[in-house]
Every structure is written in structure tokens, then in C-alpha cells.
Amino acid sequence: MPADLIDALKDAIAAGDWHRALPLLRARAELEPDHPRHWANLASVAPRTGTDPVPALRRAVLLAPDAPGYLNDLGAADRDGMTAAARLLVLAPLHGPATIMRALKAFGDGKIRLARSLLSKVLVAAPDTAEACYLLAQATEQDGMISRAVGLYRTVRVLDPADRQGAGRALARLGAGPLEAAFTPAHVKMVFDGYAENFDTHLTGRLKYSAPESLLRLARACGAVAEATSVLSVLDIGCGTGLAGAAFRPHCRHLTGIDLSGEMIRRAEAKGIYDRLLTGEVTTILQQERETYTLIIAADVTSYIGDLTTFLATVAVRLAVDGTLLLTALEPAPGKAPGIGPDGAHMHDLAMLRRCADEAGLSLKTYERGAMREEAGQPLATLFVAFTKRRQTGV
């Protein structure tokens, strides 16, 4: 490949400009078609541009059929990945990713004990594999051995203190861990980075997500938004791909979005909705911010927050006096205490929200009950709440 094209390729990759890098990688693979690494590199960039990586991976496997790495990548990308996994296990019987893939298939087929057996083999070969330990904990819980599952979830927390897998969430759900530690930033980031590609269609289609529209109606009802005027400055916390931003954009002059997931932010940026986008953990970012906002939106954010006191206190600092905070909260069933709900998310009742908000210098403006989305075909009881920042707080 000519030196100038190689330099251009390096520049594109360094800049994260995958749409520019993809044709250069394809050109390199076609110029030297017998090099499997070129096809594998092409496949690694393809998903970032919405291109199917499977054809390039199949070419890499054809050129190097005994290379476990290419088979593993193909197994992960191809819907018929079990064929690749089976060949992998012939080449390398203790290959971790392939064994995990087989275990997931067994799990999905209801063969829980087979899944446990396969995952146990992975841990014999590689005891520090947090993913396998987490999946074994899930299979063990499904098999009814709760105390043993709790021990395995705790092991995951030791293997991976950042808890990308979400063991803290499982422990909180089982009453064996603190609610405040249920969702770590690393876990939330991993979940939504993986969810970003299908987020809009799955959430609004299959789950019938309607939080942005419900919050906009609430904003109109309480006077936070009016048709004749624009809100000066709006902050969308947990902006995701921009669903709430799109609903509120016509009513604000300046719109900022914050999200923990870089993949979500990338998709929000592509829509051109926001004036400014920030990537990172929300309380950390807001503690560093100097801007104040007339309106702050937090649609389906408290579902992932156990420590409401710290969250609301941090948000209140960035909210202008007499400004409005709009948020949603999954509501526990009557007689049930706040905690982790059946869908694995935090539930907060109105009394808890009011108490934490009051400590932050926020007063309840109005609220409504409804459902912001469905889970397993059933509406999730949701509080749609508007708070205002009191003048006398000195915050």
C-alpha cells in the first residue's frame, strides 16, 4: 500500500474518523488480499460505521482457519456464531470466549446445568475471568442455589472492582449488597455502549418508551415551558441518543447533554440536536461545571441511581433559582419499599424523592403518575415529577 495512504489511514484511526478509515482499510485488504490481518482490521472498524463485519471476518477465517482469534471474532459477530464456537473448541478445548458462547446458548435454551458445567470449566482454566464467574453466578441463581450465587457475585466484585458485569446490581436485588453500589459507572457505561446501536428502535418500539413526551407535557402544565417563549438554558442529564433532547429542542435556546456512554453521545452528536455534549459520570461533571440552567431534565436516570441525596444536591447547585428539575422515577408497588425492582432498576417512592429534594433545596412543584415504558409487556409504574429551586436555600 502506498506510503501516503498508510499515513492517511494512521491519521484517520488516530482521530477516530472511522468513516474515513473504512475505505482505506478496504483498499489495503484488496491490495494484499492474502493477509488475514488486513481483513480482520477491516472487520474491527466496520461496526463503527454501521457496516456488517461478518464478510471480512469470514475472509480472515478462510485465510487462517486455525487462528482462534479470528474464529472468536466471527463467532461474536455472526448470528450463526455457534459454528465458529464449535470449531474453536476443537482447536482449543479450553478457549474461554468460545466456551462462554456455548454456555450462553445453553442458558438461552434453558439448559442451566449444562451452562454451569461449561462455565465451571472456564474458571478452572482461568479463575480470574470475571465474565465467566458472573454468568456462573446467574446460572447458579437460576438453579435455586441463592447463597452459592451470592458468593459467586461477591467473587466477581473482587475480580473486577469496577464491576463492569453488574454483580453489585445482582447483590442489591438479592438483599445481599448495598443499594447505593448497585450500578457502578463502569457497568452502566458497558450496558449502554452495547445498547446504543439499537437503542432508539428498541426503546421506543418494543418497550414503548414515552418519558420525553410525558415530561414535556408536565413542563407545560407547571409553566416550565411555554409555546410563546424559549427556555434560556436546558441541561439533559443521561441524554442517551437524544430522545428527550429532540422533544425539548424547540423550546430552548441552548441545550447541553450529558451521558456516561461514549457510544450514546456519538449517536446524539450525529443528530445535531445539542449545542454541547459532555461524556462522563454526571455528578463528577456537574461538580466541575460553572454553568447554571433554567431547566434540567433527567428522563429515566434515577433508575440507575441509589444515592438520590448526592445526585439531587449536585444537580441543585447547577439549577438556577426558581428553575425547574424534571425527572422520572420508577415507583414501587403499594406497600413495597423502595429498592431494586423486578426489571433490575432502582425504584423510588414520592416520599423519598421529596425528602431528598428538600435536603437539596428543592420544592415539589407538581407530579403525575403513569408509565414511561414497558417491561415484559407490562407498563412500569412511573412518577413524573417537577421540582423547583427555592430562593432561600443559598445553594
Rank of each mutant, 00 (worst) to 15 (best):
D11F: 08
L25D: 02
L31F: 14
A40D: 09
V45I: 12
A56S: 12
A60V: 04
D73L: 13
G75A: 12
L91I: 07
L91E: 08
G96M: 08
P97A: 01
D109F: 00
D128T: 13
D128W: 03
A132R: 05
P161H: 00
R164A: 12
A181Y: 03
A182G: 07
T184P: 03
F192A: 02
Y195D: 02
E197N: 10
L203Q: 08
T204K: 10
K208T: 05
S210N: 13
C222I: 14
V225T: 05
A226N: 15
A228H: 14
T229A: 15
T229M: 10
G238V: 03
G240C: 06
T241W: 07
T241C: 09
G245H: 09
A246R: 14
F248S: 05
L255W: 12
G257Y: 08
L260W: 01
Y274F: 12
L278Y: 05
V282G: 01
T284S: 14
V301F: 01
T302S: 11
S303W: 07
L312I: 01
D322Y: 02
I340S: 02
P342V: 11
D343R: 10
A351G: 01
C356L: 00
D358F: 11
D358Q: 14
T366K: 13
E368G: 14
E368H: 15
G370C: 08
M372I: 01
R373M: 03
L383R: 05
K389M: 05
